[in-house]
Design a protein around this nucleic acid. Structure first.
Length: 988
RNA sequence: GCCGCGGUGGCGGAAUUGGUAGACGCGCACGACUCAAAAUCGUGUUCCGAAAGGAGUGUGGGUUCGAUUCCCACCCGCGGCACCA
């Protein structure tokens, strides 16, 4: 190849190879093979009018590189693509232009397809799916019907008869307040409301009551948490799922209401604090208000508050969270079942109707929200948990006996001088507050006063504040024992100077000193509870929400929080006053939308027979053509306007009936699409259509059982971080349901989930049209080529982090491609230099590992490093060059194939196998070793790579430079790290 | 507030079973080519210092022969959740 190098004409090369790959059907996955399978899923795009986004390139390019490598390694790879095409943007477009969504979708898909193909991604187009294709959504509807026809009872899936109106179906209809977006005119799932605003248009949502279809995802809540332990997701994703489901364990407690038969049941995670409940709160929507309306003395006031609360949008309610409001229900009292205390009941909107029982017992001393509320409305608090403190100055000593005590610790304040009294000890270098043990049955205040009198002589002190109760552990040196003590902190005020002479024995021990607040510090005073007392002293106390030791709680006293929870729950169960209970933040999934462009819900409403599922053989229930797409103002779907579609005869009684007019949400079609890919090898072989050989009693999942058994689970699911809660949770839920039905072989759909970061605009801001910082992949392909764009999005930064687009960065990668192209001329028949062979083999090892771990930025940098070495060495053998092209091929497949072909290798790079490193060429003959002296690098030695530790140590010491830095000092220690370094520590 | 993640040159970022900090790329400087520019190629580029040397991975402490990596405390940034009892 001595002719002058022709220019790197990437455009020509890329078009050429894309055509060849398509003709060869290179990416085709085979159902069943002797090869190991790899099912690699990327999130299928929503074909919007805006076209492909560089963010898509990030995910698809990374996965494409991975899949190409896997194919070279001999895997039967399934890497499919399709279209998640139902949804609002297309409907809005239709609304504006009158173009039917089907037409707009087809156009958009065309554009997307062209763009995706221009990037050379190796998708298996034989398995392309489209959620808006009736052949596809037939099965989305079919799965919905299965939800309707089944229930989970005692953890088991059972079938529910059509006329059964009692059993709780997995799909059910219910009148309920929904989040209504007045702009989109659509009901939103809780998940689609972001801090009170519509996820799509950011309009404030309203509450609206409407009949809605709901999927009972909560029936799977525990499994959705527990099964996370069996999958390989990023911890971040697992945590997000767990938090979203929000499982809390605790107890339900029944409070009775004085002079009423009705009770009030609450859910609490802290039943151990039951003795500290000083009031109760119910949500404004709570039925109790209706049930006992006649007993309420301030009914009007309450009604007004409820009306106000109902008017508030979710946004207002959350914004209001700075200041809690509420109102006491006068005329009724609740009775605390453990001590029969009468406590007031409030209505307040900080308690949510939708969580737990919609009512709480309020324990202001141990809950921030209750604390705030009690403070505002001046409700008494009672501490029932003492925080445990281990005193840092005198830590308990293992092996010493433990002694329990109850102690008062008093701080005396003199308001005239604003100083605090401490005892300055004579024999010990410390100060203390006035402490003393409490005798049996002695009043705490009296005991404290007695102690104050004994130790200071002051006769007239007045208790001004309870500083709290703590439970410190410490070592008491004078008795040589460990102590666990309940400390009562008390603040007294000195009323006058009237004082008795103290005993000589007291005078011998300590003096009395008055200090300013500023001189009371944790170091100057021996006091285990110092921080707690000072917080209270400075009026900065807060609810103690942590765990500790139960106090003021009768039979729970002395127990740890965990022990107390167990004991009180048992007690409640024994007395039929409550039970252990679990609650979730996760709500059931509101599954209906009042829109046109979605899957029709296949249900029939007959006046006589009630609700009926559409017969499965009548699926798919196709969307009718309409003229107008606007949702109706009363919130009904546009389908409700088409009389000839809505009105049908009841399949059961033959009378008049109506179709359900709600459609499914955007999430429906994507909840099972990965199964559809696996069930559709090619259109010629099998089409998912109701017109072909599906028997009435058969379904596609049964027919395609072998294919599903072969492909499922998805081995790697790569997508955006933004879908890691909702879509992932929904599809896991559907999959578990299908697993229960026996249609899929695993309980989890995705063995591994990875997520890529987003690409920001060059300004570091999220790309958006309005900011004008959008990078168009088409333009990048035109200017630099697909290979450069592919390599650049890999090189841009760590795969899972967000990164900003850098215009000069892509130029740098393009320069690399050009250099790769030009370096073809360096291929010779000469033998390779050893240095090049070593670099090559190290690169093979490094890239293989990095690709496997999605360390894509370093894959590219390692290719660059090798290229740099090649340029320095100046020549490369054909054999080594082939290996380099193979390593390059997943990242930049077009240029790799083109050069490969020019060098007249048969087959394409992809058809070749992944190179193996030669272990003989991973380390050179000579290595550089570092000598550290007293922790600093002082010397570098070039030694044989076979050197032993002893030889290395000797070589290090023998070096003149080493000796110079040791400078005659005595050597304390020498550490040799084999073939890496020698560390010499000198004395002094 | 709670949970999670992170903080390394002028910039994006490499390197963690503790073992040469700054790979690779960008930018910048100088040089070659050119009438000139762009492109390309070469050399250099953590900071201070002429050098010897010293300092250095958010801050402060600790463990160690040795810490970006481990431990403690703190500061800052980002992401998620947010009155979930």
């Amino acid at each position: 190849m001595n002719q002058p190098m022709e220019k790197y004409n990437f455009h020509e090369i890329e078009v050429k190879w894309q055509k060849i790959w398509t003709e060869k059907d290179y990416a085709k996955a085979d159902d069943f093979s002797d090869k190991p399978k790899h099912y690699h899923l990327v999130e299928f795009p929503y074909p919007s009018g805006a076209g492909l986004h560089v963010g898509h390139c990030m995910g698809y390019g990374a996965s494409d590189a991975y899949c190409r490598m896997k194919r070279m390694r001999g895997y039967n790879v399934l890497y499919p693509i399709g279209w998640d095409a139902f949804g609002l943007p297309t409907e809005n477009y239709a609304l504006k232009t009158g173009v039917h969504p089907t037409v707009a979708t087809a156009e958009n898909i065309n554009t997307f397809k062209k763009q995706i193909k221009s990037l050379g991604y190796s998708f298996d187009w034989n398995r392309e799916i489209n959620t808006t294709d009736p052949a596809y959504y037939k099965w989305t509807q079919w799965i919905f019907l299965q939800f309707y026809k089944h229930a989970i009872i005692d953890g088991k899936l059972i079938e529910v008869a059509d006329d059964d109106t009692v059993t709780e179906r997995l799909a059910y209809q219910k009148e309920m307040p929904i989040n209504w977006c007045p702009s989109c005119k659509i009901g939103l799932a809780n998940e689609e409301v972001i801090s009170g605003k519509c996820e799509r248009c950011s309009t404030e949502t309203e509450k609206r009551s409407q009949k809605q279809w709901i999927l009972r995802i909560t029936a799977y809540a525990d499994r959705l948490i527990n099964d996370l332990s069996s999958v390989n997701y990023l911890d971040k994703i697992k945590t997000q799922q767990i938090n979203w489901i929000g499982r809390s364990t605790g107890a339900e407690v029944m409070f009775s209401i004085k002079n009423h038969k009705t009770g009030l049941t609450v859910f609490t995670t802290r039943p151990d604090t039951l003795f500290g409940a000083t009031f109760m709160v119910i949500s404004p929507e709570h039925p109790l208000i209706k049930n006992i309306a006649n007993s309420i003395e301030n009914k009007e006031e309450i009604d007004e508050y409820i009306r106000e609360a109902a008017k508030k949008s979710d946004l207002e309610r959350t914004e209001m969270n700075k200041e809690k409001t509420g109102i006491e229900i006068k005329g009724i009292k609740a009775i605390n079942p453990v001590n029969n205390e009468e406590i007031p009941i409030f209505v307040a909107d900080y308690v949510l109707a939708s969580y737990g029982t919609g009512a709480i017992m309020a324990v202001p001393a141990h809950d921030d929200r209750d604390w705030e509320f009690a403070n505002k409305y001046d409700i008494p608090m009672r501490q029932v948990v003492a925080p445990e403190v281990t005193y840092y100055k005198t830590k308990p000593i293992e092996g010493k006996p433990w002694v329990d005590r109850v102690v008062t610790e008093s701080i005396i304040h003199d308001p005239r001088t604003n100083k605090y009294l401490v005892l300055k000890w004579k024999k010990q270098p410390w100060n203390t507050f006035i402490t003393g043990g409490i005798e049996k049955d002695e009043d705490i205040i009296e005991a404290a006063k007695r102690e104050i009198h004994e130790e200071t002589g002051y006769k007239n002190v007045k208790l001004v504040k309870n500083l709290g109760i703590t439970r410190p552990s410490f070592y008491a040196a004078h008795k040589d024992e460990n102590r666990r003590a309940i400390f009562h902190g008390l603040l007294f005020e000195l009323e006058n100077d009237e004082r008795d002479e103290t005993d000589q024995s007291e005078k011998d021990i300590h003096d009395i000193v008055w200090l300013n607040r500023g001189d009371l510090t944790i170091d100057s005073i021996v006091c285990a509870s110092f921080d707690y007392w000072m917080e209270a002293l400075d009026n900065k106390e807060a609810a103690f929400c942590g765990e500790g030791i139960a106090i003021n709680s009768d039979f729970l006293d002395g127990l740890s929080t965990d022990e107390a929870k167990t004991k009180i729950t048992k007690w409640l169960e024994q007395h039929d006053l409550g039970k252990a209970a679990v609650n979730y933040k996760l709500r059931d999934w509101i599954f209906s939308r009042q829109h046109y462009w979605g899957e029709p819900i296949p249900i029939i409403h007959c006046q006589k027979c009630g609700m009926l599922p559409l017969d499965e053989k009548d699926l798919p229930l196709e969307l009718p053509m309409v003229e107008r797409y606007e949702p109706t103002d009363n919130g009904e779907s546009p389908l409700a306007r088409i009389d000839e579609w809505v009105n049908i005869t009841c399949p059961k009684c033959g009378g008049s009936a109506k179709r359900e007019t709600d459609t499914m949400p955007n999430w429906a079609g994507s909840s099972w699409y990965y199964l559809a890919y696996a069930m559709q090898e090619r259109n010629t072989k099998y089409e998912i259509r109701n017109t072909d050989r599906v028997q009435p009693d058969e379904n596609i999942f049964k027919q395609k059982k072998h294919e599903l058994d072969y492909w499922i689970p998805v081995d790697i699911y790569n997508g955006g971080m933004e879908h890691t809660t909702l879509h992932l949770l929904y599809s896991r839920f559907w999959h578990k349901f299908l697993f229960d039905l026996g249609f899929v072989p695993t309980s989890e759909p995705y063995a591994k989930r990875i997520a890529h970061g987003i690409i920001l605009g060059p300004d570091g801001q999220k790309m958006s049209k309005s900011r004008g910082n959008v990078i168009n992949p088409d333009e990048m392909v035109k200017e630099y080529g697909a290979d450069t764009l592919r390599a650049y999005v890999m090189f841009i930064g760590p795969y899972d982090q967000e990164s900003a687009w850098n215009t000069t960065g892509i130029q740098g990668v393009h320069r690399f491609m050009n250099r790769v192209w030009n370096n073809q001329k360096l291929v010779t028949t000469q033998n390779d230099d050893k240095a090049l062979l070593i670099k090559l083999n190290q690169t093979i090892v490094g890239i293989s590992e990095d690709l496997e771990n999605f360390g894509l930025n370093t894959v590219v940098s390692k290719l660059m490093e090798f290229n740099n070495t090649l340029e320095k060495v100046g020549h490369i053998s054909t054999e080594s060059y082939r290996k380099f092209l193979q390593l390059l091929s997943p990242v930049a497949p077009h240029i790799a194939d083109e050069i490969w072909q020019k060098h007249e290798f048969t087959r394409t790079t992809e058809e070749s196998s992944w190179p193996e490193a030669d272990p003989n060429y991973l380390v050179g003959d000579e290595i550089e070793v570092v000598v550290q002296i007293d922790g600093k690098v002082r010397n570098r030695l070039t030694v044989s790579s076979t050197i032993t530790d002893d030889e290395l140590e000797q070589a290090a010491l023998a070096s003149a430079r080493t000796q110079e830095f040791i400078g005659g000092k005595e050597i304390d220690k020498i550490v040799v790290v084999p073939k890496r370094l020698v560390s010499i520590a000198t004395k002094g």
